[in-house]
Amino acid sequence: MNTDLYHVSVYRFNPEVDKKPYMKNYQVKASDCKGVMVLDLLEAIKQHHDPTLSFRRSCGEGVCGSDGMNINGKNGLACITPLSDLEGKVIKLRPLLSFPVVRDLIVDLSQFYKQYESVQPYLQNDTMPAKENVQSYEERKVLDGLYECILCACCTSSCPSSWWNMDKFLGPSALLWACRFIMDSRDTETMARLEDLQGLYRLFRCRGVGMCRDVCPKGLNPTQAIHDIREKMLRDAV
């Protein structure tokens, strides 16, 4: 790729003026980019080409989950996707697919948040000691890979089962959170949590496609978490 000039094609849609979405091309000087990430490119477009371009961003370092988007066909976070990693002549930026577009690269995540809330993503345990709960090093280690989700929605947006049943299937992110509390040695509602995931859709619509794992910018593996929940259901014979 010619690194002096970036050729970018960005999805644009403003419901107030546009009948339908379109792709708009920009040629952005590398020297206008403050850093080397896709987010720096978007900031450069906003500052030097078109202040009306809309996107979310906050931390700029891959922990807040604001800037999940579709980058050259694959979901990821703009702030930690280096421009140098992108192949092809033109960088194509689109909103996360399967969610309603609010404007440009901004999608409506209400349904995604509703799914998250529906798994009761908080510790449940009515009896607490005076100091901390004792949780062994090994018990805590089980939570590694489960608690780090940043709710960027890259996974759920990539999941074919979510596309077809967004309202009934919980999707990989919410299920990863469900798993995080099911596996927590301090939580007393494990059985109720497993029970809640029974049925044809909430958990069992996962077909093990694994797109969630492939796109997770934090390197997490919701497919495995879903598998582990199923195994626990069998073992604990809900």
Binding site: Y122, L123, N125, M128, E132, N133, V134, Q135, S136, Y137, E139, R140, L143, Y147, F181, D184, R186, D187
Partner: peptide, 13 residues
Amino acid sequence: EHMGMPFSRNQQG
């Protein structure tokens, strides 16, 4: 911790 925050643990838990 009681709210569920996943603190790392030492060998004594």
